[in-house]
Amino acid sequence: MRDFPLEAEFAVDRGETLVLIGENGAGKSSLLFLLSGLMPPESGRIMLGERVIYDSSKGINVPAEERDIGFVFQHYALFPHLTVFENVAFGLRRRKIPPSEIRTRVEDSLALLSIESLDAVRADRLSGGQRQRVALARALAIAPALLLLDEPVSALDAGAQERMRSELRACIRRSDIPCIAVTHSFRDALSLGDRIGVMENGRIVQNGTPDELMRSDHEFLHRFFCGCRQ
């Protein structure tokens, strides 16, 4: 485990994306996994708005399956044996939603990402970019209270990354869901982020718009953005 506590507080508006950047081991991915409930904290408190989802002193621990947080994994974690439709419908079926509504919501999600034609294709037959879209459609279909993206385009080739960044941003805005993304790429941070947070030893030490942070003298930001400052 890390030798520092995670103490991060931030606000993200609906349709807005906060991109977390920082050195390796700063706690960015841990933050996502702690928020989603996929990693148990040793102790402490996690709040989502006014809702306490973890509080060790009160014995509260809302399980991951009840947190209502969408998660797009770095390698997408699509279920390879299921079709695109079944992947996107998976979370809705677990919520016991009527089949007709499931169909409508899946179709809406697929349309949002322009992948309606892939609905009957098995997930293991998709290209990298298609997987990315399906993973996002699957996370959005459950209409989560919060969307988490872990290195959202890092598994794609350079050309696909560029296209996907703009699509991702547009899609998150349209979905009107607050989003937190973690990345190591300054291109991701600038293209996706409405705001950027810099994490250092478990704390957010800088938080602002890309333009504000581009002007910052913070040592990490200086190195992080050196490519585009020139």
Binding site: P63, E65, I69, F71, F73, H75, A77, L78, F90
Partner: peptide
């Protein structure tokens, strides 16, 4: 089997047995 599949299922609201 990579645990990410189980994690993805949990994040989508699936409990252990399903």
């Amino acid at each position: 089997l990579d645990t990410m599949y189980e994690q993805a299922a949990r994040s989508l609201g699936s409990t252990t047995l399903p």
